[in-house]
């Protein structure tokens, strides 16, 4: 494991914890897209089924359990515990337009036509677009709480660090996974617009106002 992969995982963990704590502490999920959180729970569930079949390392298993646990805890807080604060009127992205094409693509383009591999491929493709409902919701409301922008920053940074990790592994190990790389590039590109606003306007403002 190289430093980019490790900082990528820690950035991802930070994003997940920031969001969970924000909802728990403020007892509110205002401005948070429940649909994106459901998609992330689906990503982790379909990707980490190998928890049941193979043990890779304590770190690997621990992180997967934490990711799955936090994802479902976040979905529970949004749709059950703090349901009254869920802004359903602005969380209107049609996720079926994401899940169906991604599901089809996973069957067409994969490394191996086995159930675990198809599910892994599905999770890779889905993760690259899972943030769209959240970005769509922010563009509709025109603003995002500062803590939400930090969540998005670390979430976007994690896959960007993975891209560097893959460049590193290609150069030093000859490791190369086209599916993960292409999906990772798409995923990171979706954050570019947000990264620009985060860096240029994030400083010193209480709300990040995104031009609708």
């Amino acid at each position: 494991m190289n430093i980019f992969r490790l900082t990528g995982d820690l950035s991802h963990l930070a994003a997940i914890i920031i969001l969970l704590l924000k909802i728990w502490k403020t007892r509110s999920c205002a401005g948070i897209s429940g649909k994106s959180q459901i998609l992330f729970a689906l990503v982790f569930t379909s990707r980490y089924l190998d928890l049941l079949t193979s043990f890779i390392s304590l770190y690997n298993t621990t992180m997967k359990v934490i990711y799955i646990g936090c994802a479902y805890a976040t979905v529970y807080l949004i749709y059950a515990k703090f349901k009254a604060t869920y802004d359903g009127n602005h969380d209107t992205f049609r996720v079926e337009f994401l899940v169906v094409p991604v599901g089809g693509l996973a069957f067409l383009v994969n490394h191996d036509f086995s159930p675990l591999e198809i599910l892994w491929t599905f999770s890779i493709y889905l993760e690259s677009v899972a943030i769209l409902p959240q970005l769509f919701m922010i563009s509709k409301t025109g603003e995002a709480e500062t803590i939400t922008t930090h969540y998005l920053f670390f979430l976007g940074l994690y896959r960007a660090l993975y891209l560097i990790n893959w460049i590193w592994r290609f150069y030093f190990e000859g490791f190369f996974d086209m599916i993960a790389i292409v999906a990772g590039v798409v995923q990171t590109i979706l954050y570019c617009d947000f990264f620009y606003l985060y860096v240029t306007k994030g400083e010193g403002r209480s709300q990040l106002s995104i031009p609708t």
């Binding site: 190998d50 890779i56 086995s114 591999e117």
Partner: peptide, 10 residues
């Protein structure tokens, strides 16, 4: 590709 290629990444 070798499907049993262990996926050590998250």
């Amino acid at each position: 590709d070798d499907p049993s290629l262990e996926k050590d990444e998250l």
